[in-house]
Structure formats: C-alpha cells, structure tokens
Design a protein around this nucleic acid. Sequence first.
DNA 1: CTTCTCACA
DNA 2: TGTGAGAA
Length: 136
Amino acid sequence: MSQEIRRNMALFPIGIVMKLTDLTARQIRYYEEQGLIKPARNKGNQRIFSLNDIDRLLEIKALIDQGVNIAGIKAIYENKKAPEANIVPAENENKNKKRDLTDKEVHDLLKRELLHGLSKEKVSLIQGELTRFFRN
DNA sequence: CTTCTCACA
DNA sequence: TGTGAGAA
C-alpha cells in the first residue's frame, strides 16, 4: 500500500532532524554508523531521513535516557527487524507525482503517526518540510 | 549558509 | 561525544 511507501520516503535533511529529535548531528551520524538507522543520500551525498528514521531516532533517544547503551539498543533492534532502506524520492520524477500526496493526506498521516508527544513547533517543522517538498 | 568526512591536545 | 578543518 502507498501508505507504507510514504513512511519510508526520505524527505528531511539532518538539520531538520536535529530540531525534531533534539539530537546533535554528531549523534545522528554516529547512530547511522552503528547501523541503527539507514538514511538515504541525495546526489550531494547529504543524508535525507524518512519518518521511520525520525521515529527510530526518538526511540533511541528515549532508550538512552533510560540508561540503555548503544550495544543494548543494537541488540533490541537486531532481535526485531533491521531498518528498511529509505526510498529516495526521484529528483525529476517528483514533479509529475507531486500531487500524489495531498496536503490533507500529509496532515492526516502526520497526525496519525508522528504527532504523539511532539510539540507544535516540531509538527510545524515537519509540515513545512513536506509542503516545500511537494510544492517543487 | 548547510552538510559531509576525518582527525584529535 | 565534542570540535574544528577543508571541501562541496
């Protein structure tokens, strides 16, 4: 179902993810190095994260706050499932499919899956990014 | 200005 | 984990 595709669609640069998760770029890159997340890369080699990555980052942050170390977190995820690779939104192909996801759908999707526990500011950040993405 | 990699008093 | 250099 397209709903699944959307969750793994890489859309956010590390700057946005930093604000969204309250993690430093150093930490985010380190977690990737440890195989905890699998952000995609754009043509400029910059990491682009999906909603799944952000969710996982938030989970990792919570686990660390609870005193779990990286090894422990790795074990937790390894016993479950490896993070799925992100879907890289095509640069040109995007223009033709931009309206595949309407603003209302984006809003509903976020409200249903990501807004739990996030501040209004962060929600706005996410929506702003999505809006910018689908506007181009 | 933002992000990337790599190295380290 | 932080920080700064040098490049893109």
